[in-house]
Design a protein around this nucleic acid. Structure first.
Lengths: 156, 156
DNA sequence: CTGCCTGCAAACGATTTGCACCAGC
DNA sequence: GCTGGTGCAAATCGTTTGCAGGCAG
């Protein structure tokens, strides 16, 4: 009945108290907490935890498929001069974002939720998966810590 | 014929060379450049620009509706313990993300792009707009610089 | 035991901000 | 001339990393 335990065993990862508490804190909420919100929650049960541990636990939980990031996070913001609405392919491994314009995406029309609750101004469909390059690279190689390097930083 | 100029005039904003060059740099690319990529492009034409200016010009261009951010960016990462696939409402003003489960969203099925190009593992639909609260607040009030504050930072 | 994990502090990198000067209109 | 924009440097803030102990298996 304990998913965390069985999945951890499969991967030969120890089940630490911290990871268990972080997971429970996450499951106890129905919103999309930030690391710091979870940190506060976890601190109640484990006054000694460090924020770093929350970061690492979440990273592990995502790898184990027990949690998700709700924002397609990247180190840096990206901009687009194309203000028409179009959809995106997001590579799970390298985070590369490509535009897509496929006929079957045109068939979708967003629901009208009634202007009271949430006024829909636009919508976009995110297809998540693996880009051609990352498929070739296989699941072994580096999970790709993508930090757009800033050529010469005029350091302080 | 000059969109930047007419929109700027509407809002009583000056048309600076910098903003014009940043917009052109953005339009000249068909990918989703980062601030630093644009900075490099702009530097070719204006050796003296500062990165800060690119940041500020992009912010303005987004406000004017001439550019977009391609990643729903927030200062901090958010996590979700709900690994079922579900869709999101993203408020343009306050960046709040809510889950949504509306019947009409079920009708959508993602395209198979052929496993060669991009292997779709999952998809999600982002509805962008204004949440109830922000609709009430109207378009006047603070654009909401949302920085999840970290209670007591044990400062150095 | 052995390896992965934790906590701490310092490093990092993207973005923001305060300030003095300059440019559109 | 007034208002808002720019450039610079320093500050911020989220996140990552190096390292010395600790704990799960």
């Amino acid at each position: 009945m304990d998913l965390l335990e069985s999945i951890s065993r499969e991967r030969n990862l120890p089940v630490t108290i911290q990871r268990r508490v972080v997971l429970n804190a996450l499951l106890d909420r129905d919103d999309h907490p930030t690391v710091d919100q979870l940190f506060e929650d976890v601190k109640v049960r484990m006054p000694g935890v460090s924020r770093t541990t929350i970061y690492r636990a979440l990273e592990t939980l995502v790898e184990l498929g027990l949690a998700r990031r709700t924002n397609h996070f990247e180190a840096s913001a990206r901009f687009d001069g194309n203000t028409d609405h179009h959809h995106h392919l997001v590579c799970r491994r390298c985070n590369h974002v490509a535009d897509i314009d496929h006929p079957s995406l045109k068939k979708f029309t967003p629901p009208h939720l009634g202007n009271t609750a949430f006024k829909v101004l636009d919508y976009s469909i995110h297809l998540e998966g693996l880009c051609a390059e990352c498929q070739k690279r296989g699941s072994k190689s580096a999970p790709k810590k993508q930090t757009a390097k800033r050529p010469r930083a005029l350091s302080r």
